[in-house]
Design a protein around this nucleic acid. Structure first.
Lengths: 172, 172
DNA sequence: CCCAAGTCTGCGAAATCCGCAAACATCAAC
DNA sequence: GTTGATGTTTGCGGATTTCGCAGACTTGGG
């Protein structure tokens, strides 16, 4: 009945990508394929995913639940706040003296910071912020962010127009 | 039977936020509330959303479908590629001479560019790129991006660690 | 060999999704 | 005020999906 499924599952040896995985949980090729499916359509039924990756509906459901619980992925609606029409948005490059990670944690705790990443280059941190209006933007950048201990300097890039936004790194 | 619903719907006057909306389609307060619900959980049932925003299941379903068709929002699985374990990621600031938008279009056409935004500040464009490995990263930055006509210079910020990633601007 | 932990499958019940026709609201034209 | 066109909402079946659970299978010790 399902002889076609046996071949595709656990056929390949442990993927080399797993060993390169940093701290995160282990993800085999099947879980990657499931994520790929959900990157195309976050509401795709479990049965359809199962058919695509070679697993039963229940097995897909269990894997997805675990991936969500572990925080490996999240299934959400994404928009362009500028298009939705009531926010000011900017990317802020931050230079830090002392412990970068603690500064990153402090910025992550702020509601207005939607995206915080540690980087190599002329900035130590890149932070994307979403604000109500210009006043709010000004306050967040000049008062709140620069007030964090360890922040040496910042440089702002106010968003004019979002041109592309995808989440399909898996499908190439 | 559903007297509770009547009060909450279309009670408030046309929201001021609508008028500030740029080019995008008109979004009333109900659609905003629907998006908000799906930002918390992209798989939340239509009936549950309807109860939260004061609409029938079918009405929510039609609105969601339209928002997806119009490209106002997308429901997808999002991950941290670095955690998933097999990519190099970087933010690239780009300076342009001539038409910025055409350069943005050219970069948007590249698979490796996941996020392209036009900005005000010392960069004209900010581009987030996802690559297989260091070689791929090097090729994309130094050969592909700089080869685009109009690109004057670039500056790269290789990702070391993603600290925060949320999509809940609506829920504050 | 046997047990424990983890994963997958199959299945029945409950909940959800989907398409459709009718009701309703809005608005411009007459 | 009436009429009609347009767009949205509702309620309803039937098809589909989700959900919980028990049993089977695999793996890796002790």
């Amino acid at each position: 009945m399902h002889s076609d499924r046996v071949a595709s599952r656990s056929a390949e040896p442990k993927d080399s990508r797993e060993s390169r995985n940093g701290g995160g949980p282990h993800l085999d090729a099947v879980s990657l394929a499931i994520i790929e499916q959900l990157q195309e359509d976050g509401r795709r039924p479990y049965a359809a995913i199962g058919k695509a990756v070679g697993l039963s509906e229940a097995a897909v459901r269990q894997r997805v639940q675990k991936l969500l619980d572990q925080g490996v992925m999240q299934i959400v609606a994404v928009t362009d706040p500028l298009t939705v029409g009531f926010r000011r948005q900017a990317m802020v490059g931050v230079n830090v003296e002392g412990d970068v990670e603690s500064v990153a944690d402090a910025l992550s705790a702020m509601d207005e910071c939607e995206y915080v990443v540690m980087t190599a280059g002329s900035f130590d941190l890149m932070v994307e912020i979403v604000c109500e209006d210009d006043d709010h933007l000004l306050e967040v950048i000049n008062r709140r962010i620069r007030a964090v201990p360890g922040v040496r300097s910042t440089e702002s890039f106010v968003y004019l127009k979002l041109k592309k936004q995808t989440y399909m790194w898996g499908t190439r």
